[in-house]
Protein backbone atom coordinates (compact mmCIF):
# COMPACT_ATOMS: atom_id res chain seq x y z
CA UNK A 1 0.00 0.00 0.00
CA UNK A 2 2.80 2.43 0.91
CA UNK A 3 4.46 1.79 -2.41
CA UNK A 4 1.18 2.38 -4.16
CA UNK A 5 0.63 5.69 -2.33
CA UNK A 6 4.15 6.88 -3.18
CA UNK A 7 3.60 5.92 -6.80
CA UNK A 8 0.28 7.80 -6.89
CA UNK A 9 1.85 10.87 -5.27
CA UNK A 10 4.52 10.82 -7.96
CA UNK A 11 1.88 10.57 -10.66
CA UNK A 12 -0.04 13.43 -9.06
CA UNK A 13 3.07 15.63 -9.10
CA UNK A 14 3.46 14.98 -12.83
CA UNK A 15 -0.24 15.75 -13.43
CA UNK A 16 0.05 19.01 -11.47
CA UNK A 17 3.16 20.02 -13.42
CA UNK A 18 1.41 19.31 -16.72
CA UNK A 19 -1.75 21.07 -15.56
CA UNK A 20 0.23 24.12 -14.48
CA UNK A 21 1.60 24.49 -18.00
CA UNK A 22 -1.79 23.81 -19.58
CA UNK A 23 -3.56 26.36 -17.38
CA UNK A 24 -0.77 28.89 -17.91
CA UNK A 25 -1.01 28.44 -21.68
CA UNK A 26 -4.81 28.62 -21.71
CA UNK A 27 -4.86 31.78 -19.62
CA UNK A 28 -2.23 33.21 -21.95
CA UNK A 29 -4.55 32.54 -24.89
CA UNK A 30 -7.41 34.53 -23.35
CA UNK A 31 -8.12 37.93 -24.89
CA UNK A 32 -6.33 40.87 -23.35
CA UNK A 33 -3.34 40.97 -21.02
CA UNK A 34 -2.64 43.31 -18.07
CA UNK A 35 -1.19 45.90 -20.42
CA UNK A 36 -4.34 45.84 -22.55
CA UNK A 37 -6.22 46.68 -19.36
CA UNK A 38 -3.86 49.57 -18.73
CA UNK A 39 -4.51 50.77 -22.29
CA UNK A 40 -8.25 50.61 -21.70
CA UNK A 41 -7.93 52.80 -18.60
CA UNK A 42 -5.49 55.13 -20.33
CA UNK A 43 -6.29 54.93 -24.05
CA UNK A 44 -3.79 57.70 -24.77
CA UNK A 45 -0.98 55.33 -23.86
CA UNK A 46 1.32 55.37 -26.87
CA UNK A 47 2.32 52.14 -28.63
CA UNK A 48 5.87 52.75 -27.45
CA UNK A 49 4.69 53.07 -23.83
CA UNK A 50 2.67 49.87 -24.15
CA UNK A 51 5.63 48.00 -25.62
CA UNK A 52 7.90 49.30 -22.86
CA UNK A 53 5.42 48.24 -20.16
CA UNK A 54 5.14 44.78 -21.72
CA UNK A 55 8.92 44.51 -21.47
CA UNK A 56 8.91 45.76 -17.86
CA UNK A 57 6.34 43.13 -16.87
CA UNK A 58 8.00 40.43 -18.99
CA UNK A 59 4.94 40.01 -21.21
CA UNK A 60 6.98 40.40 -24.37
CA UNK A 61 8.76 37.10 -23.79
CA UNK A 62 7.60 33.78 -25.34
CA UNK A 63 4.98 31.88 -23.37
CA UNK A 64 7.28 28.96 -22.53
CA UNK A 65 9.97 31.27 -21.21
CA UNK A 66 7.43 33.11 -19.04
CA UNK A 67 6.06 29.82 -17.75
CA UNK A 68 9.50 28.54 -16.82
CA UNK A 69 10.25 31.76 -14.90
CA UNK A 70 6.97 31.41 -13.08
CA UNK A 71 7.55 27.72 -12.33
CA UNK A 72 11.07 28.36 -10.96
CA UNK A 73 9.75 31.15 -8.72
CA UNK A 74 6.80 28.99 -7.63
CA UNK A 75 9.12 26.14 -6.63
CA UNK A 76 10.83 28.67 -4.39
CA UNK A 77 7.48 29.54 -2.81
CA UNK A 78 6.90 32.77 -4.77
CA UNK A 79 3.58 32.44 -6.61
CA UNK A 80 3.56 36.07 -7.66
CA UNK A 81 1.18 38.90 -6.95
CA UNK A 82 -2.52 39.08 -7.59
CA UNK A 83 -3.35 41.79 -10.12
CA UNK A 84 -6.84 42.29 -8.74
CA UNK A 85 -5.99 42.24 -5.07
CA UNK A 86 -2.63 43.95 -5.50
CA UNK A 87 -1.08 41.57 -2.96
CA UNK A 88 0.86 38.30 -3.05
CA UNK A 89 -1.43 35.46 -4.11
CA UNK A 90 -0.63 33.44 -1.02
CA UNK A 91 -1.67 36.37 1.20
CA UNK A 92 -5.08 36.64 -0.44
CA UNK A 93 -6.08 33.01 -0.89
CA UNK A 94 -6.27 31.83 2.76
CA UNK A 95 -9.17 34.17 3.68
CA UNK A 96 -11.25 32.94 0.77
CA UNK A 97 -10.23 29.34 1.30
CA UNK A 98 -11.18 29.46 4.96
CA UNK A 99 -14.60 30.87 4.09
CA UNK A 100 -15.10 28.11 1.54
CA UNK A 101 -13.96 25.40 3.94
CA UNK A 102 -16.56 26.63 6.44
CA UNK A 103 -19.34 26.92 3.89
CA UNK A 104 -18.70 23.86 1.78
CA UNK A 105 -17.39 21.72 4.63
CA UNK A 106 -20.52 22.27 6.71
CA UNK A 107 -22.76 21.69 3.74
CA UNK A 108 -20.84 18.52 2.85
CA UNK A 109 -20.98 17.08 6.35
CA UNK A 110 -24.71 17.80 6.73
CA UNK A 111 -25.49 16.44 3.25
CA UNK A 112 -23.62 13.18 3.81
CA UNK A 113 -24.99 12.81 7.35
CA UNK A 114 -28.55 13.11 6.11
CA UNK A 115 -28.13 11.40 2.73
CA UNK A 116 -26.67 8.10 3.99
CA UNK A 117 -29.44 7.21 6.47
CA UNK A 118 -32.13 8.58 4.16
CA UNK A 119 -30.81 6.61 1.18
CA UNK A 120 -30.40 3.43 3.19
CA UNK A 121 -33.87 3.73 4.72
CA UNK A 122 -35.45 4.43 1.34
CA UNK A 123 -33.66 1.43 -0.25
CA UNK A 124 -34.58 -0.90 2.60
CA UNK A 125 -38.23 0.13 2.21
CA UNK A 126 -38.30 0.41 -1.55
CA UNK A 127 -41.64 1.66 -2.94
CA UNK A 128 -42.93 2.48 0.56
CA UNK A 129 -44.49 5.87 1.34
CA UNK A 130 -41.18 6.92 2.96
CA UNK A 131 -39.30 5.97 -0.21
CA UNK A 132 -41.70 7.99 -2.36
CA UNK A 133 -41.35 11.05 -0.11
CA UNK A 134 -37.54 10.80 -0.11
CA UNK A 135 -37.51 10.45 -3.91
CA UNK A 136 -39.80 13.44 -4.30
CA UNK A 137 -37.65 15.61 -2.04
CA UNK A 138 -34.47 14.42 -3.76
CA UNK A 139 -35.76 15.31 -7.21
CA UNK A 140 -37.01 18.66 -5.93
CA UNK A 141 -33.58 19.39 -4.42
CA UNK A 142 -31.75 18.40 -7.59
CA UNK A 143 -34.09 20.25 -9.94
CA UNK A 144 -34.54 23.57 -8.16
CA UNK A 145 -32.19 26.26 -9.53
CA UNK A 146 -29.69 27.28 -6.87
CA UNK A 147 -30.03 31.03 -7.46
CA UNK A 148 -33.81 30.82 -7.14
CA UNK A 149 -33.60 28.73 -3.98
CA UNK A 150 -31.11 31.20 -2.48
CA UNK A 151 -33.33 34.15 -3.32
CA UNK A 152 -36.40 32.44 -1.87
CA UNK A 153 -34.56 31.64 1.35
CA UNK A 154 -33.46 35.28 1.65
CA UNK A 155 -37.00 36.52 1.00
CA UNK A 156 -38.58 34.10 3.49
CA UNK A 157 -36.02 34.19 6.32
CA UNK A 158 -34.65 37.71 5.97
CA UNK A 159 -37.51 39.76 4.52
CA UNK A 160 -40.84 38.10 5.42
CA UNK A 161 -39.72 36.53 8.72
CA UNK A 162 -36.59 38.55 9.46
CA UNK A 163 -34.72 36.10 11.65
CA UNK A 164 -31.54 35.46 9.65
CA UNK A 165 -29.02 37.76 7.98
CA UNK A 166 -29.39 37.97 4.21
CA UNK A 167 -25.74 38.20 3.21
CA UNK A 168 -22.12 38.50 4.22
CA UNK A 169 -19.92 36.58 6.63
CA UNK A 170 -20.59 38.59 9.77
CA UNK A 171 -22.25 41.67 11.18
CA UNK A 172 -20.65 45.08 10.91
CA UNK A 173 -18.18 45.52 13.72
CA UNK A 174 -18.01 41.75 14.30
CA UNK A 175 -20.48 39.69 16.26
CA UNK A 176 -18.49 36.65 17.42
CA UNK A 177 -18.85 32.98 16.59
CA UNK A 178 -22.63 32.87 16.99
CA UNK A 179 -23.01 35.73 14.55
CA UNK A 180 -20.74 33.99 12.03
CA UNK A 181 -22.74 30.78 12.39
CA UNK A 182 -26.01 32.65 11.79
CA UNK A 183 -24.57 34.13 8.61
CA UNK A 184 -23.78 30.61 7.42
CA UNK A 185 -27.29 29.21 7.88
CA UNK A 186 -28.87 30.34 4.61
CA UNK A 187 -25.93 29.64 2.26
CA UNK A 188 -25.28 26.27 3.89
CA UNK A 189 -28.98 25.39 3.64
CA UNK A 190 -29.00 26.32 -0.05
CA UNK A 191 -25.99 24.15 -0.84
CA UNK A 192 -27.19 21.29 1.35
CA UNK A 193 -30.63 21.14 -0.24
CA UNK A 194 -28.94 21.04 -3.63
CA UNK A 195 -26.40 18.32 -2.84
CA UNK A 196 -28.42 16.17 -0.47
CA UNK A 197 -30.72 15.02 -3.27
CA UNK A 198 -27.99 13.60 -5.47
CA UNK A 199 -26.13 11.94 -2.58
CA UNK A 200 -29.34 10.29 -1.32
CA UNK A 201 -30.14 9.00 -4.80
CA UNK A 202 -26.65 7.48 -5.10
CA UNK A 203 -26.85 5.78 -1.70
CA UNK A 204 -30.35 4.47 -2.42
CA UNK A 205 -29.39 3.08 -5.84
CA UNK A 206 -26.22 1.42 -4.50
CA UNK A 207 -28.09 -0.09 -1.56
CA UNK A 208 -30.88 -1.49 -3.73
CA UNK A 209 -28.25 -3.17 -5.91
CA UNK A 210 -26.47 -4.70 -2.91
CA UNK A 211 -29.68 -5.78 -1.16
CA UNK A 212 -30.47 -7.96 -4.20
CA UNK A 213 -27.21 -9.91 -3.84
CA UNK A 214 -27.24 -13.58 -2.84
CA UNK A 215 -25.03 -13.05 0.21
CA UNK A 216 -27.60 -10.69 1.72
CA UNK A 217 -30.33 -13.32 1.26
CA UNK A 218 -27.98 -15.90 2.75
CA UNK A 219 -27.24 -13.71 5.76
CA UNK A 220 -30.92 -13.12 6.37
CA UNK A 221 -31.67 -16.86 5.93
CA UNK A 222 -28.97 -17.65 8.48
CA UNK A 223 -30.89 -15.57 10.99
CA UNK A 224 -28.79 -12.36 11.06
CA UNK A 225 -30.88 -9.37 12.19
CA UNK A 226 -32.26 -7.20 9.37
CA UNK A 227 -30.75 -4.06 10.85
CA UNK A 228 -27.32 -5.69 11.13
CA UNK A 229 -27.51 -7.00 7.56
CA UNK A 230 -28.46 -3.58 6.21
CA UNK A 231 -26.16 -1.32 8.24
CA UNK A 232 -23.13 -3.61 8.47
CA UNK A 233 -23.07 -6.04 5.52
CA UNK A 234 -24.97 -4.16 2.82
CA UNK A 235 -23.97 -0.56 3.58
CA UNK A 236 -20.25 -1.31 3.61
CA UNK A 237 -20.45 -2.86 0.14
CA UNK A 238 -22.77 -0.17 -1.17
CA UNK A 239 -20.34 2.53 -0.09
CA UNK A 240 -17.80 1.80 -2.85
CA UNK A 241 -19.67 3.64 -5.65
CA UNK A 242 -20.81 6.25 -3.14
CA UNK A 243 -17.22 6.93 -2.07
CA UNK A 244 -16.29 7.50 -5.72
CA UNK A 245 -19.01 10.12 -6.11
CA UNK A 246 -18.25 11.75 -2.77
CA UNK A 247 -14.52 11.85 -3.55
CA UNK A 248 -15.17 13.51 -6.89
CA UNK A 249 -17.48 16.09 -5.33
CA UNK A 250 -14.95 16.71 -2.55
CA UNK A 251 -12.52 17.81 -5.24
CA UNK A 252 -14.95 20.46 -6.38
CA UNK A 253 -15.76 21.44 -2.78
CA UNK A 254 -12.75 23.66 -2.39
CA UNK A 255 -13.31 25.31 -5.74
CA UNK A 256 -16.28 26.98 -4.10
CA UNK A 257 -19.85 27.48 -5.20
CA UNK A 258 -19.97 30.50 -7.45
CA UNK A 259 -23.74 31.05 -7.57
CA UNK A 260 -24.34 30.59 -3.85
CA UNK A 261 -21.39 32.80 -2.99
CA UNK A 262 -22.63 35.52 -5.34
CA UNK A 263 -26.21 35.42 -4.05
CA UNK A 264 -25.16 35.63 -0.40
CA UNK A 265 -22.25 38.04 -0.99
CA UNK A 266 -20.00 35.39 0.50
CA UNK A 267 -16.31 35.77 -0.39
CA UNK A 268 -15.24 32.21 -1.20
CA UNK A 269 -13.04 30.35 -3.65
CA UNK A 270 -15.70 30.17 -6.37
CA UNK A 271 -15.85 33.96 -6.65
CA UNK A 272 -12.10 34.24 -6.30
CA UNK A 273 -11.46 31.87 -9.22
CA UNK A 274 -14.17 33.44 -11.39
CA UNK A 275 -13.03 37.01 -10.74
CA UNK A 276 -9.40 36.16 -11.31
CA UNK A 277 -10.15 34.58 -14.69
CA UNK A 278 -12.45 37.39 -15.79
CA UNK A 279 -10.10 40.06 -14.44
CA UNK A 280 -6.93 38.82 -16.14
CA UNK A 281 -5.41 37.98 -12.78
CA UNK A 282 -3.01 35.36 -14.18
CA UNK A 283 -1.21 34.44 -10.99
CA UNK A 284 -4.34 34.10 -8.89
CA UNK A 285 -6.20 32.10 -11.55
CA UNK A 286 -3.26 29.78 -11.98
CA UNK A 287 -2.73 29.10 -8.30
CA UNK A 288 -6.42 28.65 -7.45
CA UNK A 289 -7.01 26.31 -10.40
CA UNK A 290 -3.92 24.31 -9.53
CA UNK A 291 -5.09 24.13 -5.95
CA UNK A 292 -8.45 22.75 -7.10
CA UNK A 293 -6.60 20.18 -9.24
CA UNK A 294 -4.43 19.12 -6.31
CA UNK A 295 -7.44 18.72 -4.03
CA UNK A 296 -9.23 16.58 -6.64
CA UNK A 297 -6.18 14.35 -7.01
CA UNK A 298 -5.82 14.04 -3.25
CA UNK A 299 -9.51 13.19 -2.85
CA UNK A 300 -9.23 10.47 -5.47
CA UNK A 301 -6.19 9.01 -3.78
CA UNK A 302 -8.11 8.95 -0.50
CA UNK A 303 -11.02 7.26 -2.28
CA UNK A 304 -8.69 4.54 -3.59
CA UNK A 305 -7.40 3.97 -0.08
CA UNK A 306 -10.98 3.86 1.20
CA UNK A 307 -11.86 1.16 -1.36
CA UNK A 308 -9.28 -1.14 0.20
CA UNK A 309 -10.67 -0.45 3.64
CA UNK A 310 -14.27 -1.03 2.53
CA UNK A 311 -13.55 -4.16 0.50
CA UNK A 312 -10.65 -6.30 1.76
CA UNK A 313 -10.55 -8.11 -1.60
CA UNK A 314 -9.10 -4.91 -3.09
CA UNK A 315 -5.35 -4.76 -2.71
CA UNK A 316 -2.81 -2.41 -4.28
CA UNK A 317 0.22 -4.34 -3.14
CA UNK A 318 0.47 -7.29 -5.54
CA UNK A 319 -0.77 -8.89 -8.75
CA UNK A 320 -3.46 -10.93 -7.01
CA UNK A 321 -5.40 -7.79 -6.06
CA UNK A 322 -8.55 -6.71 -7.82
CA UNK A 323 -8.39 -3.16 -9.09
CA UNK A 324 -11.69 -1.34 -8.75
Amino acid sequence: MTRYIIQRLGESAVVIALMSFLIYALIGLMPGDPIDLMISSDPRLTPADAARLRAVYGLDRPLLERYLSWAVAALGGDFGNSRLHVRPVLDVMPTFLLNTVKLMGLSFVISVTVAIPAGVYAAARQNSRFDHIVNLLCFAGISVPVFWLALMLIIVFSVMIPILPASGVGSIGGGGVWDAVRHLVLPVTTLTIFSIGSYTRFVRAAMIEVLRQDYIRTALAKGAGRARVIWVHALRNAMIPVVTVVALSFGTLLSGALITETMFAYPGMGKLIYDSIMGNDYNMALVTLLFATAVTLAANLLADIAYAWLDPRISYGGSEGVRP
Partner: peptide
Amino acid sequence: GKVVVQIIENTAAMEANLLSGS
Protein backbone atom coordinates in the same frame (compact mmCIF):
# COMPACT_ATOMS: atom_id res chain seq x y z
CA GLY B 1 -20.71 57.48 12.85
CA LYS B 2 -20.05 54.76 10.31
CA VAL B 3 -20.58 54.29 6.58
CA VAL B 4 -20.44 50.71 5.40
CA VAL B 5 -20.12 49.89 1.72
CA GLN B 6 -21.46 46.36 1.43
CA ILE B 7 -20.72 44.44 -1.77
CA ILE B 8 -23.56 42.32 -3.16
CA GLU B 9 -22.94 41.48 -6.77
CA ASN B 10 -26.28 39.93 -7.55
CA THR B 11 -28.86 42.69 -7.95
CA ALA B 12 -31.84 40.48 -7.04
CA ALA B 13 -30.09 39.58 -3.79
CA MET B 14 -29.24 43.26 -3.32
CA GLU B 15 -32.94 44.14 -3.58
CA ALA B 16 -33.82 41.45 -1.00
CA ASN B 17 -31.09 42.81 1.28
CA LEU B 18 -32.58 46.29 1.03
CA LEU B 19 -36.03 45.00 1.91
CA SER B 20 -34.66 42.96 4.80
CA GLY B 21 -32.94 46.05 6.20
CA SER B 22 -29.46 44.52 5.85
